[in-house]
């Protein structure tokens, strides 16, 4: 009698300890985010950063704002058309990324934006011809310097006329060479530094997209 009471007391105490632990574990597993993806070269912001407002213009002279980034994944590179080396390299790499993703059956394909940080020389019309050369779906974006800075400062993208530049016509522009990835909410989700390896960027994009979709 005494023995069986003791036994049931122990059983109750053990159950009293184990059940909350099991419950906590179950809660943890069922509510936790999927594991962060392993990336080949990109840097993921696990907490994507929403953007504060800016107003730029696309290569069809239509307004381009933080809301224009919503609804699809977008890659963005910041450069200028007088840039003969780094910018064609980056846009060529992004063209290859799109080809690789297309071959992998990724739909919809992420959009590619080329943001000119040289609005004094790059008009929307100039940009339209420039980006279409790389891919008909690429979008050129530019705007007033103050509005460009509203966007770039949120992304850690820096740019400025090089002190080496000899005159007002032939100046060169120093600029961050990172490719930025925005998620379909239009939030800053990841960046890809130099060198831009199309295979790695394509693989990272798929990993980030799958992780994002599993987190929703």
């Amino acid at each position: 009698m005494l023995y069986s009471k003791m036994k049931s007391n122990i059983a109750t105490r053990v159950a009293g300890r184990i059940i909350p632990v099991l419950a906590a574990l179950w809660l943890l597993v069922s509510c936790s985010q999927p594991e962060l993806p392993q990336l080949a070269g990109g840097t993921l912001l696990p907490e994507a950063r929403p953007l504060t407002p800016f107003t730029l213009v696309d290569d069809h002279n239509a307004p381009f704002t933080q809301d224009s980034l919503r609804g699809q994944w977008s890659f963005a590179f910041f450069g200028y058309t007088h840039c003969p080396d780094v910018c064609p390299n980056a846009l060529g790499a992004l063209k290859r990324v799109e080809t690789l993703l297309e071959a992998d059956g990724v739909t919809p394909l992420p959009r590619v934006l080329f943001v000119s940080v040289d609005p004094a020389r790059d008009t929307p019309d100039t940009l339209a011809g420039y980006v279409a050369y790389f891919h008909p779906a690429f979008v050129g974006v530019t705007g007033e310097d103050a509005e460009l800075k509203l966007l770039t400062r949120q992304l850690g993208i820096l740019y400025g006329r090089s002190p080496d530049s000899s005159n007002d016509k032939d100046y060169v522009v120093d600029h961050s060479a990172a490719i930025i990835l925005f998620n379909p909410e239009g939030h800053y989700q990841a960046l890809f530094g130099i060198p831009h390896d199309p295979q790695k960027i394509a693989a990272d994009f798929v990993a980030i997209r799958d992780w994002y979709e599993a987190s929703q």
């Binding site: 007088h82 840039c83 064609p88 011809g129 420039y130 980006v131 050369y133």
Partner: peptide
């Protein structure tokens, strides 16, 4: 280079 590119490499 693209048609609109002012500089070549």
């Amino acid at each position: 280079a693209p048609p609109a590119a002012p500089m070549l490499a």
